[in-house]
Amino acid sequence: MIAESGMRGLRFLVALLVVAWLGACGGGDEEAGEDAAPTPTVYPSPNGPASTDWVIRQDYGGYQLTYDCTTRTALQYSYTLGFDDGTVARPTSFKLDPTLPEGCGQQTTANSYAAAIYPGYDRGHLVSSNHMDYDADYILRANYMTNIVPQVATFNRNVWLDAENVAECYRDIAPVQVYGGVVYSDPSNDWFLASHGIRTPEHFWKAILTTDPATGAPKAIAWYIPNVEGLTGLDPYLVSIDELERLVGTSLVGITASPAVKAMKPATSWPLPAGCNYN
């Protein structure tokens, strides 16, 4: 009989192969995120290998989410950005996601977290709406609550915005691949379970892959950032993709790259290029 530890490893390996296959088939036409109900796919759960969580990969056209229907939260997102020529205005309202398959849970309301019992949290975007401003449907979908989680307000408006701006600026130099997600590990700060049906993430992570236009060589940067008050910069939270995979799990990070790229860890966060328009 196979030991339980062996079974866990086998289940993880199967899930990893499924994730890799889906990543290779990722993307989709404009209608996929709005109308299609993707076939549910079992992924490793953040609650452990024995969890029965229902986790799917959902395509929104401009971006993709790995989404946990059981705990009502996205776990990972990914998308690719080219040169910024978008001018579509960000929607002023948030809405529940009409595209989830039947029976897949989501937050119970699109209301502000500020209206709940615990102050100081924003409806924080995983996929930046500013990155989707090249398409009216994509930027609308970025305001679905499946792309929103509780973010400490000062975190959302400072260091998380700084990380978003790195992708926003470097896309004008060469195409960028953006990956990111959330980590839940502490139930003591789950202020919004009663009001919204979602836990509060303890960490956010983001990775950006691109190429050096002068040499064509690949380059990568990643951060693993606590969702707390008082952060003043990105540099203390720099990690390599290798480190990120150890912290989050290789399958959930979902990045296919060479060992050399996964080992990259810049000494400082990439400076924003002069003249970058990140509005």
Rank of each mutant, 00 (worst) to 15 (best):
I148E: 00
S5D: 15
V253E: 02
Q151C: 10
S5H: 12
R246H: 11
Q76K: 15
A136F: 04
Y170A: 02
V127W: 01
W270A: 09
P150A: 08
M1F: 14
D53M: 02
G120H: 06
D84E: 13
D190Y: 02
V228W: 14
C104V: 11
E245R: 12
G23R: 15
N143V: 08
V239M: 05
S93M: 14
P201E: 00
G61R: 01
L126D: 00
S258Y: 11
H131K: 08
L16F: 07
I139E: 00
H203C: 01
K206S: 04
A89C: 08
T92W: 03
H203R: 14
T154K: 09
V253M: 09
M1W: 14
P91Q: 13
Y60M: 00
T73Q: 11
G86A: 07
A110E: 10
W160N: 00
V149K: 01
G28N: 07
G82D: 10
H196F: 06
D35V: 13
S240C: 14
D190E: 03
Q64W: 03
Y67S: 02
A174Q: 12
T108S: 14
P38T: 07
R123P: 01
P271E: 12
N227Y: 09
Y118P: 00
V14I: 12
N277Q: 10
A220Q: 04
V178M: 04
V248W: 01
S45I: 01
D35A: 12
L247A: 14
G33E: 09
T200N: 07
L272S: 04
I241P: 04
Y113Q: 12
L100P: 01
W205L: 02
G6E: 15
P259T: 10
A167I: 06
W54D: 11
A194R: 10
Y77C: 01
C104F: 11
G216A: 10
Y144N: 01
A114D: 15
Y138K: 00
V261Y: 06
L247Y: 15
D97F: 05
Y144T: 03
